[in-house]
Computed example of a mutant assay.
Amino acid sequence: MKRKFLSLLAFVAVAVVTTSCGEKKNETKGEDAKTEKKITSEAVKYKVDTANTVVTWKGSKVIGGSHNGTMNVSKGTFAMKEGKLESGSFIIDINSLTVLDIPADDNGNASLKKHLLSSDFFDAKNNGAAAFSITGVNEKEGKTMIEGNLTLKGVKKNISFPAKVSVEGNKAMIVSEVFTINRTDFGMKYGSSSFTDTFKDKAISDDVELSVSVVATK
């Protein structure tokens, strides 16, 4: 009986570990910045349509609870060569950050936005813009993988994510899958249990989910 009980405990322990350590969405580790790709003379240039381009974000607590929202892209260009993405870059307006999971007229919305824009997180006063520049594009397991330098809060790291790239007439689109970056790679250590003794029920996950939807025209 005792042996069966211990076996049951072992099974439960394995199940808990497996559940809590599930695969993260397209996790990308921030690496040293790489050489950014240049636009060649043969490539077709596109200008980002900022009104129809958006970056979405989602941050979570280690144990339960999350917030999500968007940020705007203020400008950008990219180039296509023979129907494939060659190079490009765009600027993200950090001050355009919105919170979508709390009603806009709720005091909690303004409070959270203010905290996210503070030096604890994005430090928008001193780093009001983030930038992404493509360093490579390749096919992996049937997906287009875009690699580029992300400059956030004054820190430049190379990241990669899967995306669908398409062209329709004079319009080109880049729509990424949801991918994950580690915010502490960019100096955002507030509430991280990796660097402080924050209790798990109050700790904020180091991982932030992002996705981008870029529309551009010739």
Rank of each mutant, 00 (worst) to 15 (best):
V214S: 03
G30M: 09
K58T: 15
D185P: 14
G169Y: 13
V165N: 03
V215N: 05
K61N: 02
D106Y: 02
N52G: 01
E168Q: 09
L85A: 02
K58A: 10
E147V: 15
K153Y: 13
V214A: 00
F179M: 03
D207P: 08
S192Y: 10
T135R: 02
A43E: 11
T18G: 07
I91S: 07
T56L: 10
T28A: 03
V16K: 00
S160R: 11
F11P: 13
S193Q: 05
A33P: 14
G142M: 03
L100R: 08
R3Y: 07
E42C: 05
K29F: 12
I63G: 00
F5S: 01
V48I: 12
G136C: 07
F78A: 02
T18C: 09
T98N: 01
M80L: 06
I92S: 04
G83L: 12
N109V: 12
S118W: 14
L150S: 06
E139W: 05
I174E: 01
F161I: 13
T35L: 05
A79P: 08
E86F: 13
I174P: 02
G169A: 08
V99K: 00
V55I: 14
F78D: 00
M71Q: 08
N126G: 03
M173P: 13
T19P: 02
S66C: 02
G154Y: 14
S60P: 10
T135C: 06
K75W: 08
T19E: 06
I94N: 03
K171H: 11
L6Q: 05
A163D: 03
M71T: 12
N127K: 08
K157W: 14
V212R: 00
E168W: 09
L210I: 15
S119F: 11
S89P: 14
G154L: 12
N107S: 10
G191C: 01
C21T: 15
K47M: 05
S194T: 11
S74E: 13
G22A: 09
G65A: 03
V167Q: 09
E177N: 13
G65L: 03
K153T: 14
I181F: 04
V137M: 00
F78T: 05
K61T: 01
V212Q: 01
V48Y: 00
G30A: 06
S87W: 04
A51M: 05
C21A: 04
N52F: 01
D207I: 13
K125D: 14
T135P: 06
V73I: 15
K24Q: 11
M173I: 13
L152F: 14
D49M: 02
T50L: 00
V215R: 00
T53I: 06
L210G: 04
T40S: 10
D123C: 07
